[in-house]
Design a protein around this nucleic acid. Sequence first.
DNA 1: CTAAGAGTAGACAGATCTGTCTGGTATCGT
DNA 2: ACGATACCAGACAGATCTGTCTACTCTTAG
Lengths: 173, 173
Amino acid sequence: MLVTAARLFYREGVHTVGIDRIIAEAEVAKATFYKHFPSKDDLVRAYVTAESSRQRAAVATVDTGSSREKLMAIFAFMCEFGAGPTYRGCPFVNTAAEYPDPDHPVRQAIAEHRRWTRDLYRDLLADDGHPDAERTADILLLLRDGLVVGFDLDDPATTRAAVQEALARVLAA
Amino acid sequence: MLVTAARLFYREGVHTVGIDRIIAEAEVAKATFYKHFPSKDDLVRAYVTAESSRQRAAVATVDTGSSREKLMAIFAFMCEFGAGPTYRGCPFVNTAAEYPDPDHPVRQAIAEHRRWTRDLYRDLLADDGHPDAERTADILLLLRDGLVVGFDLDDPATTRAAVQEALARVLAA
DNA sequence: CTAAGAGTAGACAGATCTGTCTGGTATCGT
DNA sequence: ACGATACCAGACAGATCTGTCTACTCTTAG
């Protein structure tokens, strides 16, 4: 059910996919759905937090040597995934675009994932001995957002090359 | 009419704003609206191209000395605007998030604006004598996308500082 | 003066949206 | 065996969506 919703939300957007679509494709009764999720927004929030969990779990599996290599592996993976045919951009950025109110629970879930992402970068940089881990983490978050938008809207090969070169320049300092 | 639609689309998103809202706030009859725009998608496309024209015009007014200063002024302006209370992210990125199909006319209009943006960066860099204007322009586009997402979703002051530092590191090479 | 063009208000059609409710069926722990 | 719980299919309500249509008013050019 959540898996089906996630697939549809990611591929087609949140507002364009109705409850009827989801329960039909998940082969679930409407009453069952509304028992699990009191409203559609609850489902959207669950979608966001589930996606966040997925990404945290994915990062946890990356256990290549140093923190620097780990950081590089994370960006390499994002590039690899972004170049794939099913890529539709970042679920958090895309969903946020459909929720203008920053105080909305969905937006708060997104904000929380972004904080985790930034702190992940900072910790990896600090562990690698980077002299300015805080600011550089903010820059890597900028780069990450540019990455997800670029792979969605522009030529993947160009975006990949730009990301690699940008990483080199940003981390060289 | 287009101005009203642009305001609503930008503030609340494309799919959430209905035709009825637009004609009510624009104080226009429904038949009049459908005479000018055969369908809502036509209006959305007009919104995107109008926004593109606005940005091109805004860039044209920047006539500070060198190309380098011009580039800096453009990013400074984006930061200034992004820190404002009415900022809701990039209209192109946000709208693209609601149109998954890359072949859709709306997406094509967005793609065209992105090409213009990238070429603007490239021309300014080349005019400034940058040794790798092509690749650096791609990187600046990454940075731009990170900027618009960051100012929308994160702390503006942090994002501004990150953008400035990132610009310095990217252009230093 | 008049005919055409453009705008207005708003009813209407048909689809779709979220969310509720009814009634029937199956599973499972005790 | 039996009550609780969870599921099913689907009708339904009420709102809202896009887009069409009717009927009327106003302006303007010939």
